[in-house]
Simulated scan of single mutants.
Amino acid sequence: MSLLNFTLRCGQYRSALGALNPLTRSFHSSEIVMARQVKKVATPSKKMLAAKARRKAKGKKSVYDSEKMNLADAISVLRAVEVARPTTTYELVIKTEMKKGVTIPRGRMALPREPKNMSQDRILVFAEGRHLEEAKKAGADIVGGPELCDGIISGRHRATVFLCIPSLLRAITPKLGRFLGPKGLMPSERRGTVTDDVSTYIRRLKGSSEWKGDKSGVIRTPIAKMDYPVEDVVKNVRYFMNVVKRATGNIQDGAEKGRKENANKPSTAIQKVILSSAQGPGIQISDA
């Protein structure tokens, strides 16, 4: 049998078998179905993003708004939580808004009833003449003139508070400005550490403690003991809030309102006030 006849016979047998078995699938060629194309998402413009942010900020509400309490109720809750620890301490946390160029709030205070032992500051005074004698009598630890600058830089003279009379400020600034400035210890008229009434300032320092915020504008301070009467706790909180509000420009005294530099100085907003304890929750105060 020739090759041609064998091929034809095989074709006939194949067609006959296909007719007998109807389930046999016949393959055929067809056009390739294209996969579904995903539409590209258009990149929103800056104008659209800004509008979306405004809508989001307008409808945004803090989840803690419903958890605010007045001061008296917050004190009662924390006293109940700390019933087994009567000597623990209330902590007051104040969050201030730190915008670009705003200085970190800081100052000194003497609470009506102190919850901790007063820290003993080491006071250095730049003075001469009668001011030098007044500083010594008031209890300054180190007193002298510009000759103290080298000892301060070398670490021989260590202090936590630096005072200066106005006549010596220009003499010490070139040497100590870059050394004490970043530490927040450089004598300054704004902070009240440049004064002719050195003795009064030293006596005030002896009975007060320093407070200051961190880089994010959060101020933390122990405000009272758990076993204090509620009236004493409220008095301490109110007093410290007034001190912070004055330091941040939210309250101005009559003398401060007349100054031009304070008239143009923007105030730093107080965003929230929280009272807490060692084992208790942090409670946001509504009437601080």
Score class of each variant (00 low, 15 high):
P105G: 04
R85D: 14
G144C: 05
P166I: 03
R106Q: 11
D73A: 14
V77S: 09
P22C: 09
I142Q: 04
K175R: 15
F126Y: 09
L92F: 06
T24A: 13
P22E: 06
G129V: 09
E97P: 00
V81A: 11
V194R: 02
K60L: 07
M109C: 09
G144P: 02
N262A: 12
M34H: 00
V143H: 03
L78G: 03
E114F: 03
F179P: 02
M1D: 11
M241S: 08
R36C: 12
L8W: 13
E91I: 07
L176V: 09
M98H: 14
D65C: 09
L49V: 08
I223S: 08
F162E: 01
H28R: 15
V81W: 04
S276Y: 01
Q279H: 14
S66V: 13
K257T: 05
V93P: 00
K260T: 12
L4W: 03
G181Q: 04
E114A: 10
A263T: 04
L148Q: 06
K235W: 00
G217W: 08
R54Y: 04
G280D: 01
D227P: 01
V194G: 03
A74G: 05
D121A: 12
S199T: 04
K68D: 03
K39H: 12
K272V: 00
P166V: 04
V102Q: 14
P281I: 03
F240H: 13
V63R: 14
A57N: 13
N117S: 13
V230L: 07
K265C: 06
N236F: 01
T103S: 14
M118C: 05
S199F: 00
L168W: 01
P44S: 05
F126M: 03
V63K: 15
A74Q: 04
W211L: 01
E256S: 15
K95Y: 10
R108V: 09
V243Y: 01
R158A: 13
R25H: 12
T96H: 10
T268N: 03
T173W: 03
R170N: 15
V125N: 11
G207V: 10
D287E: 08
E134G: 06
A171E: 15
T173G: 05
I251H: 06
L180V: 08
I104N: 03
S2M: 00
Y13K: 14
R106P: 00
Q284F: 06
K235E: 14
F6N: 13
A138N: 03
K245H: 12
G11E: 07
I270M: 13
R113I: 08
S76P: 00
G107L: 01
V125K: 09
S62I: 08
A57G: 12
H157Y: 15
K183N: 04
K39V: 11
L168M: 12
K47R: 13
A42V: 15
E97R: 12
A80V: 01
G249Y: 06
T87Q: 07
G181E: 05
K137D: 10
T43P: 06
A278P: 02
I172F: 07
V273D: 02
L111P: 07
V273F: 00
A263I: 11
P146S: 09
V102I: 10
D73L: 07
